[in-house]
C-alpha cells in the first residue's frame, strides 16, 4: 500500500460519506477548519481508517497533528499499521 493509495481511499470515503457533493477536497486541504468536517465527521473518519487498515488508535492519537489534512492522516495511518498497534 503506497501513500497515494491510502490518500485516495480516505478521500473517497470523505467525499462519499462525510461532505456534500459540492464540496471539493484535496489531500493537502485543512481538514479541521470547520468547513469540511464536524466533530461527528471526525469520529466517523477515525472509525473508518481503523476498520479499513486494521489498527487501533490510542486516546493520545486524537491530536490535530495527526488529522490536519488527508495527506497527514494517510501518513499517520501508514505509521500506525506498520508498527502493528
Amino acid at each position: 500500500m503506497t501513500a497515494s493509495d491510502v490518500e485516495r481511499r480516505i478521500l473517497t470515503f470523505i467525499r462519499s460519506e462525510l461532505v456534500s457533493s459540492d464540496v471539493s477536497i484535496n489531500p493537502d486541504d485543512e481538514l479541521l477548519s470547520g468547513a469540511i468536517l464536524d466533530s461527528m465527521g471526525v469520529v466517523r473518519l477515525a472509525a473508518f481508517v481503523q476498520e479499513e487498515y486494521q489498527f487501533k488508535m490510542q486516546p493520545a492519537d486524537f491530536m490535530i497533528e495527526n488529522f490536519r489534512s488527508v495527506a497527514v492522516l494517510a501518513h499517520f495511518v501508514r505509521k500506525g499499521t506498520s508498527t502493528g498497534q
Partner: peptide, 13 residues
C-alpha cells in the same frame, strides 16, 4: 479553534 473542538488530545494539551 474548530480543530481543538474536534481533537480532545490537542484540547487537553
Amino acid at each position: 479553534t474548530p480543530a481543538l473542538l474536534m481533537m480532545p488530545g490537542s484540547l487537553a494539551s
